[in-house]
Design a protein around this nucleic acid. Sequence first.
DNA 1: TCACTTTAGTCCAGTCATTAGACTTAATCG
DNA 2: CGATTAAGTCTAATGACTGGACTAAAGTGA
Lengths: 399, 399
Amino acid sequence: MTVPPSRPTRIDTMRERNLALVLREVARGQPVTRARLAEVTGLTKTTVASQVALLEELRLVTTAGPVREGGRGRPGAPVSLAAGPVAGLGLEINGHYLAACVLDPTGEVRLSQTVACDNRGRDARETLEALGTLAQWVIARAAETGLDVVGTGVALPGVITEGNVNAPNLGWESVPAAALISGALHGQVFGVIVDNEANLGALGELWYGAGQGAGSYLYLSGETGIGAGIVVDGELFRGAHGSAGEIGHVVVDPRGTTCRCGGTGCLELVAGIDAVLLAAGLADDVGASEPGLAELLRRLDDGDRAARGAIEAAGQGLATALVGAVNLLDPDTIVLGGLHAHLAPWLTPAIEAAVAHGGGKLRGGRPAIRASALAAESAVRGAAGTVLAAVLADPSALA
Amino acid sequence: MTVPPSRPTRIDTMRERNLALVLREVARGQPVTRARLAEVTGLTKTTVASQVALLEELRLVTTAGPVREGGRGRPGAPVSLAAGPVAGLGLEINGHYLAACVLDPTGEVRLSQTVACDNRGRDARETLEALGTLAQWVIARAAETGLDVVGTGVALPGVITEGNVNAPNLGWESVPAAALISGALHGQVFGVIVDNEANLGALGELWYGAGQGAGSYLYLSGETGIGAGIVVDGELFRGAHGSAGEIGHVVVDPRGTTCRCGGTGCLELVAGIDAVLLAAGLADDVGASEPGLAELLRRLDDGDRAARGAIEAAGQGLATALVGAVNLLDPDTIVLGGLHAHLAPWLTPAIEAAVAHGGGKLRGGRPAIRASALAAESAVRGAAGTVLAAVLADPSALA
DNA sequence: TCACTTTAGTCCAGTCATTAGACTTAATCG
DNA sequence: CGATTAAGTCTAATGACTGGACTAAAGTGA
């Protein structure tokens, strides 16, 4: 086994764990009295009081004045998450833009900024430098509002292996992104976390979008490639080498054409945006997905044959791949994100039909199919959210 | 979120966790001195000594006399797992037999018994009664050897939803197996755990067979149906409704025939044992897999055309499904188990080729393909192992 | 209006697993 | 045989928790 030689539990570990426990219960419940916290956590009132005092000191929660609720005894003082100064920064690198957003512990977007620019051909260092500049600017603006950024999440369209990023769509090979960017972002308690766009998009939807309430679900991030973020019991599923969720290279047609990955009949070849545009006769727009997508939607509305045919093929491919994914992963919900969110009305019926049939008789629940609620923002939001999740998981790190 | 309102950490929780930590370190390391345990756990020598004393009292470990190793100072007294009296019972229900085995904490098989009988048509209660009788007999024999069974794991070919078992191959519908069997197995500290055969088979291979050393892997359990047990970081992956790993109903041919599940072109239809026998012209043997399998192997060796063709189709289907699984789950290793273990020599090449190509350029590691090391025993072993895993995870429950 | 009840939150002594470091034991080295 | 090294034990101190007593602030009913 490759299990890490797990840490011993010391007396202060106990304290840290209970601190996190109390904070977590405040986070869901929002205004909660100490008495109720004691009840729900199983800790004594004494302990809860001391933990809440600590959390107030860390400025993660605030206590309002006593509120009478019509109940009998002494009214309780409700504890809620503080809307500052602790905050998380989310960054995103994509083919056509850089984005940043700042979230406070309540999940509110306090600041958000997008810079259009072409990162496809550009040198990785150059792109990361631009991102660093953007980040510093956003952090400074946040500071003016009294926000203190305690960590940064970075989303990008690539696979991260041992700290190095491979992002074919950006032309990146083995770029130590976290190391390069953290120069511009020194002194943050929770440091810089770099992750795949699909993964962070999945978390964004889980925490702030269409995935709320779902325990386990699959988020589909469609761009030129197609990635999936897999969330299980509120945690990302990463696989043995960190490259789980590569649904774009699932085989949907064993008799199909050869893919750039070396395989045959991959999903990407029928349901990737470029593939759909090509099949719809919009070859000129390939590579510039956003305008191409707009044109595709127009033609679909007009009833254009080629467009309808292309989207149908894409729907069938997705259906096949997703039936496989449902049988293997058994998710609660499937969220269509990225550019595929816009195509959801045309894709959903085929997927729903296939999922209802495939293995339908054998499994307990049938997953719901939903379109992303955050659209293009899900990855940045997820990136910023990971910082807040880290705070929630170990608030004592701020001490 | 459906997160359980997690337990508070009290002072005795700390003790329990550290007790489990020490035991876990003894389990891997086998003869370890207290000094080394202190070093590796991060606890002080004092604490380790007191925890080891407790574990000795629970009869989970034993200390041997001091052993000189040629080193300098005072020689340490090696602590090892005890080969008794604590033991786990594993049970298995399958189409053609009932099986039981008893494992001690070292993982040694201390007792094992198989009873051939046809459980396909039989009433569920009747089968469970027979299993109960077998279990009681085995427990009594174990007691004669000084073994005390502290819990039972039951493997069966079905999906468990909220305690109820659906097992089409046994003709079971909504059978509360755990409740029915635990009458015959009262008074065990860790109670009765019922799980899917593929899941427990996966754990069996992980702990005692071909999966040792793999962090994340996929175990294929091939019988009439095909199931997969997915292990991630040493833990089973169950999905949202407990029916993850239904790889038998992944679509491998969108243009294929209709499956009993309602889907089209499922893996089971080309790679399930019955399907292979049928395609090989061994229709008479369908339903009696074991003798049919023997005949199939004979014909394969003889170079029979129909047999070779059938196995090739099965290999292609498996390859397609597994490429999908690898892309989605990113496992370390793939283990071919159940009846497919016997076919491994004929199936492996196609699978390896497909996995090497499909997504090969994009991912970090390529999974290894292995045949099961325990063959038919993996599920019973895994079932017994879950009990020991429960002991390892919380030894204080024995106090 | 005033005593009574109910509930929220604080205070204080006691518990107990852990730590740190001194001490004892048992081996090898020169 | 004394010096050195390492394993294991003993003892006092630490600190987060618990349980119960206490105070605070509301509503209830005669």
